[in-house]
Design a protein around this nucleic acid. Sequence first.
DNA 1: CACGGAAGTAGACACTGTCTACCAATGGTC
DNA 2: GACCATTGGTAGACAGTGTCTACTTCCGTG
Lengths: 192, 192
Amino acid sequence: MSERNAGLRTRLVDVGVELVTTEGVQALSLREIARRAGVSHGAPRRYFPTHLELLSAIARRGFEDLAARGAAALGDGTESPRRQVATLGRVYLDFALTHRGMHELMFRHDLLESNTLGLRDASLPVFGMLVDLVGRARPDVDARLVAGALLANLYGIAQLWTWGSLQLITGADDFTPLLDAAIDAHLGREDR
Amino acid sequence: MSERNAGLRTRLVDVGVELVTTEGVQALSLREIARRAGVSHGAPRRYFPTHLELLSAIARRGFEDLAARGAAALGDGTESPRRQVATLGRVYLDFALTHRGMHELMFRHDLLESNTLGLRDASLPVFGMLVDLVGRARPDVDARLVAGALLANLYGIAQLWTWGSLQLITGADDFTPLLDAAIDAHLGREDR
DNA sequence: CACGGAAGTAGACACTGTCTACCAATGGTC
DNA sequence: GACCATTGGTAGACAGTGTCTACTTCCGTG
């Protein structure tokens, strides 16, 4: 079933992904991952010299997963760029709220700031997609600036929503109005 | 000079604030704070039963500080609501980038989610100000929704800017265009 | 067969947060 | 004034953590 001989390196990351989605980010201690992988606590050091690097590798899986979900949702890309941005935003918010632990890990300060294993760079493809779509949806503006602002908006909604602040402020119980508001704001209101 | 007999409770928080701004958030161990306060490692427990509560008290100072800076920048409030929102946004981004450690602490997941010491509630006054101003700047829209979206946008810009992602995406080296873009987006472009 | 390197083990070290037993002072009451 | 209880802080223990280092085990190659 699960490939027990898949090489310790990938097995450690597998265990980490499993662990962060089920138990949360505070369960990702080096020793616990090693235990669940069935090896001693010193074994991971062979592949990940430091705890941070192992965490970065796990977070990287999150970015890859997110990118895959985005690509799958876009499909053949026949929708209008505007709607593709909307679906991307929804996919991202769904992901962030469903996989809270993983999302939290992906955007941890110490991971991104140290840029271990090029984690920050690994997150760029997803963003590149967004810049491209924004450019096609609004050819009249600085696409990189608008895409950056929109991305920040989506990220902020994801975070503030997870700990309930936005529910308190807006009184909403679904993030859809916020998502629509953000996209309308940055891409202009659409006549439907 | 510094009040050494100010009561251990506030002195611990003082030390924590000092420590997080100079050394960063990872330096905020319970024992280190106790050491710098000149007491044993068990002493804080009398006032803060758990490490998390002490951290929350420190973060709370951050929110109070931020609110004070906002109020000071607004002054007598003679500016147009639109401009007041802009100054508030600038104050917040300046704060976030100048006091990175404190800002990181203020929005730590485990603190906000557990809402220890009502930390999440302590952050609401700042947000209330924003809702009010947005309502006066754009009486035609759902102020709470727009304010929430704008707030999320500001927060996202602060975060993504601190670890350099937005610089990579937008190519900018100053956050002003992003701030302007966000405010224009949510409040509508202003004829200047 | 010998050897060398790769892979993993096991123990030590310093450090962390929490818990518990103790101690010293302080102040109120009889 | 003697007693006692409460408050505020100390000190040591405990389990857990990340990192480092010495050691074993195993396998392929010469």
